[in-house]
Design a protein around this nucleic acid. Structure first.
Length: 589
RNA sequence: GGUCCCAUAGCUCAGCUGGAUAGAGCAACUGAUUUCUAAUCAGUAGGUCUCAGGUUCGAAUCCUGAUGGGAUCACCA
């Protein structure tokens, strides 16, 4: 639509002798109730035209119609100039753009971006909140790749620390040698089980100590289990062979479990970072900051940065004993990532509870003069809430990722069987289909809302399969594929053979042409929801077309061919759009 | 208490850097299948865009304040 923008600029110059910038041309889609496809808001030009909005619109419209062969007609309603673009233009778009293999595949833009997501703790299994994180991260990586970026998907695994030791201590105390093999329990769930055990037993010990007369704070510190965990952490840092061995074993179980979950979710990573390798990083950056005078040292030896001028607080970056805090490692890890990949942008997919942390982190790196700091971005997404409130691992109010995915599979199976849609499917095909639909419903449900917003999930209400859902879009795709296969349609058979379009056909082409713009928008906004809502709109438009127009029984052969082309193009965009969300679409359902 | 985020139909959400009479889905009601998949389509009903000011040709959108909800303010991560 750039040609229209340029023509408007020229029109304003010719008519009113004024130069305007491209961004001052406000193009929008024409509303359904008016004639045309593209609308220009003419209010802003009334100042230079010194005429009313209607007259200004009429003059610009006349000018455009004279200069642009693609403009068939125009009409003016108040300050809105509605343009009807010729059918020849839309048909040309379909054949020379939409139907080509490289449609909506952006050329490499020469920019490299890292998307860090997932970043689990290895002491418990993944839950619904992690699912949102993983889906957002994976989808965003796909979108950025489609927009022309060179993308690295990174996972920073939190595999060390006191919480990991808690699971280990509990297992050593109560585990009696349980392994995933011996109990049949998935490795990450096994670790999680002992993490919960630790917490239970620990609370009991605290209670006992309080009953013996200790203050609560005191009791929390003195509980034998906590002492044991802390001692284990020291041993771990000292490379105690037995502890390291146990740590490796249990983490190994957890990774096996995570691999299964990741596989079912359909996410993947190009690069793993482990905190056990990075937790000591950052100390040299602290040193650098002291030399540059960005940080200062207090009498006790602790190192701080004063961010009060930026509206934030003073922040500790190194403890008095010289050990790292969270932000120390993150400073070091940020440098490590940059040294590894020299990316232009680095995106952290992390919940909005850490907004403050990332604000501070990025600000510090800027103050340290890191040239790459401006490319850092925190994709801050909202928490997933249950009707009962926030999920809490230790209180068992979490929606487990594996359970949820299994439920989705079962629901998909039940619904599909009820509709009797799987006659002639092999068992293998059925399993694959139920997985595709179940995950499609779940993924779409989570990705269709703006990442920034918090999300309400009711485990008692199953995720819908009708209406604004993943299965609706998947169904539309399957339906198209069914028609195409009945017609034995092949892409080679496509040549232009109609001259004019009907309303719904034109709407469909207009919708298809938007795909590349939508991808770019999703990329700049870091929002898979943009894609999700677009694909839904497109599927709706197609379904309307499907009902209004007969394809296989079209009045004429050339019309049939054209509608098949339009269908094939729709299937392609739906499929690609869903792929950007990490959602597969079935050939039949 | 300081800082940050959020508030649109009964419910879940769209609404791009300000533009036409604020849109979908679910739930409710009505209709469509001798014809390409009815997980679909067409229609009815449902709104003080939390409230009060301000900016201007024009505000759900931008600014200020209030109210309600959430997060965060650890020598935890």
């Amino acid at each position: 639509m750039d040609f229209i923008v340029e023509a408007v600029i020229k029109a304003v110059k010719d008519l009113y002798q004024t130069d305007i910038a491209a961004k001052d041309v406000n193009l929008q889609e024409t509303r359904k109730e008016f004639e045309g496809q593209v609308t220009i808001v003419t209010f802003p030009y009334t100042k230079v035209s010194r005429k009313g909005p209607e007259q200004t619109g009429a003059e610009i419209g006349e000018h455009l119609k004279n200069y642009l062969p693609q403009i068939a007609a125009f009409n003016v309603v108040k300050g809105f100039l509605n343009l009807s673009v010729t059918d020849a233009y839309w048909l040309n778009e379909l054949h020379t753009n939409i139907l080509t293999d490289d449609f909506a595949i952006a050329k490499a833009n020469g920019h490299r971006v890292m998307v860090e997501y997932s970043s689990p703790n290895t002491n418990k299994p993944l839950h619904l909140g992690h699912i949102r994180n993983n889906l957002l991260g994976f989808s965003l990586a796909e979108i950025l790749a489609a927009a022309g970026y060179d993308v690295i998907k990174a996972n920073l695994v939190n595999d060390r620390g006191i919480h990991i030791c808690k699971s280990m201590v509990a297992w050593r105390e109560f585990g009696q040698g349980e392994t995933p093999q011996s109990s049949g329990l998935k490795g990450d769930h096994l670790a999680g089980k002992y993490y919960v055990w630790f917490d239970k037993a620990y609370k009991q010990q605290i209670q006992e100590l309080i009953e013996q007369g200790q203050a609560e704070d005191e009791a929390k510190k003195n509980a034998p289990l906590m002492k044991e965990a802390q001692q284990m952490l020291v041993q771990w840092e000292n490379n105690d062979p037995e502890v390291i061995d146990l740590w490796k074993t249990m983490n190994g179980w957890v990774y096996e479990g995570f691999d299964v979950t990741y596989k079912t979710l359909g996410v993947s990573f190009d690069k793993y970072y482990y905190e056990s390798n990075t937790y000591l990083l950052g100390k040299d950056i602290v040193e650098e900051g002291l030399v540059k005078g960005v940080f200062f040292k207090k009498e006790d030896g602790s190192v701080w940065i004063d961010l009060t001028e930026d509206g934030l607080d003073q922040k500790l970056v190194l403890r008095a004993d010289g050990t790292s805090v969270y932000i120390t490692q993150d400073l070091g890890t940020a440098q490590l990532k940059y040294d590894d990949y020299q990316m232009d942008e680095s995106i952290y997919v992390v919940g909005n509870e850490q907004d403050y942390h990332f604000k501070v982190l990025f600000l510090i790196l800027q103050k340290l003069g890191k040239s790459w700091a401006q490319g850092l971005y925190h994709l801050s997404y909202g928490m997933v809430d249950l009707p009962s409130g926030k999920m809490k691992s230790r209180e068992g109010t979490v929606v487990d990722a594996d359970d949820l995915m299994a439920d989705m599979f079962d629901t998909a199976k039940k619904q599909t069987e009820e509709m009797g849609k799987v006659d002639g499917f092999s068992e293998e095909d059925k399993t694959k289909l139920y997985h595709t639909i179940g995950m499609g419903a779940l993924k779409y449900f989570l990705l269709k809302v703006d990442p920034k917003k918090r999300l309400l999930f009711d485990p008692n209400e199953s995720v819908d399969f009708q209406g604004h859902t993943g299965p609706f879009i998947q169904y539309t795709h399957a339906r198209i594929k069914s028609v195409l296969s009945r017609a034995a349609y092949t892409p080679e058979s496509s040549t232009n053979n109609v001259a004019e379009l009907d309303g719904i056909e034109r709407d469909l082409i207009v919708g298809l042409t938007k795909f590349p713009v939508i991808i770019a928008e999703a990329a700049t906004n870091h929002s898979p929801a943009v894609i999700a809502n677009y694909v839904y709109e497109l599927a709706k438009t197609y379904n309307k077309f499907y009902h209004e127009k007969s394809i296989l029984q079209a009045e004429e052969e050339r019309l049939k061919q054209f509608r098949l082309q339009l269908s094939a193009a729709s299937a392609k965009v739906i499929s690609r759009g869903m792929a950007l969300l990490g959602i597969a679409v079935p050939e039949r359902m």
